[in-house]
Structure formats: structure tokens, C-alpha cells
């Protein structure tokens, strides 16, 4: 049998001669040296290849875990960016509609007369201690023509009074117009800044129908 002495086995052999007893892990030195011997259970090379497999399995598992973490974090960043753009940057978002409406209210002379000069606008009170801003209440819907309706309300505080501002905005493929913008002030009723609510024509005849030939 070919006896190839590796430095490892030479050290072990030396130690063995020093201490005078074989070690628990020592096998027949010849079998350990032979490179051509097949891996069998019970031999040292099988243990070594098992260790290599375990190490590469561990590496693969940590790589998979960290890759999943990075991809998940990037995905969440993308989602957060999308919602940020949708809520704060787009001109049809709640925040932009709110700013536009409050700008109109600030410029309106009658509102300033009813509420006072220094106006502040805010949303609904929440019970959340960590919320820095009071969120604006709004509801969006799409009608059967494909236009988006935004119904919103917020509070306007002035020195003299506090009003509830209500508005409806119609988003017709890019054209954003207010259908109505009204301030409801307790004690003073409603003050309409914009009112383009379409109203049904009053029927005059029997059952509301105009009988007879067309007059005009």
C-alpha cells in the first residue's frame, strides 16, 4: 500500500509516539493516506465530504435568506415610493385638492369676513397619539362616465368661527373642476364659494311632465 505521509499525519504520528497511546480518532494510517479509497461510512473521508456538504448547504441557506431580505426590502421601498407619489405628488391626490381648496377659501373675501383673518385648515381628529397630522376625510368613486368624484371635508379655523368645508371635485381625464365648495358655519348656515351642482328642471304640469307641444 502506498504510504504518503501528509504533514498532518506526521504530526499525529509524532504525538502518538510521544504520548504512547493511540488517539480515539486515529484509524489505520495507510487507509487515511490512500487517495483512491472510496468514501464509506466509518472512514475519515466520508466525514470530510459530509462536512463540506454541510458548509456549502449553510452558505446556500444564508445566501438565500439575505437575498430574500434584500429583495423584500427593495420591494417594500418600491411600494412606499408608489404610495408617496400617489398621495403627495399627483395633482389629483387628496393633499393637492385640499391645498387648492384652502387656497380658494383664503382668498375669498366673504369667508375671511365670516371666519376671521388668520385661517388654519386641518382634518379629522384621531385618537392616535403618534399621528402628527390630522388626516383629511375623503371618499373617491368613479361614475358610469368614467369620471372620478372626490368628496372631501375639512375644518377651517379662524379667529371668529370654525367652519366645516365640504367640496366635490370631478376629475374628467385630467380636467379637475370643483362641483361645489361650501363652508358650513354654525349659526351662519352655508356659504357657497363654488356651486355648479346640476339641478333637475322643475316639472310644471301633471306628474311633473310638461304636456302638449314644445313651447319654445
Amino acid at each position: 500500500m502506498l504510504r504518503i505521509k501528509s504533514p498532518y499525519s506526521q504530526c499525529l504520528g509524532g504525538l502518538r509516539r510521544l504520548t504512547g497511546r493511540p488517539f480515539a480518532t486515529s484509524r489505520s494510517v495507510g487507509l487515511r493516506q490512500s487517495q483512491a479509497a472510496p468514501s464509506q461510512p466509518g472512514s475519515a473521508t466520508f466525514g470530510a465530504s459530509l462536512g463540506r456538504f454541510a458548509a456549502s448547504a449553510r452558505r446556500a441557506a444564508t445566501f438565500t435568506f439575505y437575498s430574500a431580505l434584500v429583495i423584500g426590502a427593495l420591494g417594500f421601498t418600491g411600494v412606499a415610493t408608489y404610495y408617496f407619489a400617489q398621495e403627495l405628488l399627483l395633482p389629483s391626490s387628496d393633499v393637492q385638492v385640499f391645498q387648492r381648496a384652502f387656497h380658494l377659501i383664503e382668498q375669498d373675501a366673504k369667508s375671511r369676513e365670516l371666519l376671521g383673518e388668520k385661517l388654519k385648515a386641518h382634518g379629522e381628529q384621531t385618537n392616535n397619539r403618534w399621528a402628527h397630522n390630522r388626516p383629511i376625510a375623503s371618499r373617491r368613486s368613479v361614475d358610469h362616465y368614467g369620471r372620478e368624484h372626490v368628496v372631501m371635508q375639512f375644518h377651517v379655523d379662524g379667529e371668529k368661527n370654525t367652519a366645516l368645508a365640504r367640496l366635490e371635485l370631478i376629475d374628467n381625464a385630467g380636467k379637475r373642476d370643483f362641483r361645489y365648495l361650501v363652508l358650513e358655519i354654525p349659526g351662519h348656515g352655508r356659504h357657497y364659494l363654488i356651486n355648479e351642482t346640476p339641478s333637475k328642471p322643475k316639472g310644471r304640469g301633471l306628474f311633473g311632465i310638461q304636456w302638449g307641444p314644445k313651447k319654445n
Binding site: E124, V151, Y180, V182, H188, R190, H191, Y192
Partner: peptide, 15 residues
């Protein structure tokens, strides 16, 4: 959802 606004009733004349 934050509180959704109640739809206003038919427009009233200002008092």
C-alpha cells in the same frame, strides 16, 4: 380609512 365624509343633503339656502 379615516372618517369618510357624510354626503351633504340637498343644498340649503344660506341663513
Amino acid at each position: 380609512n379615516p372618517v369618510a365624509p357624510a354626503l351633504p343633503e340637498a343644498p340649503l339656502a344660506a341663513a
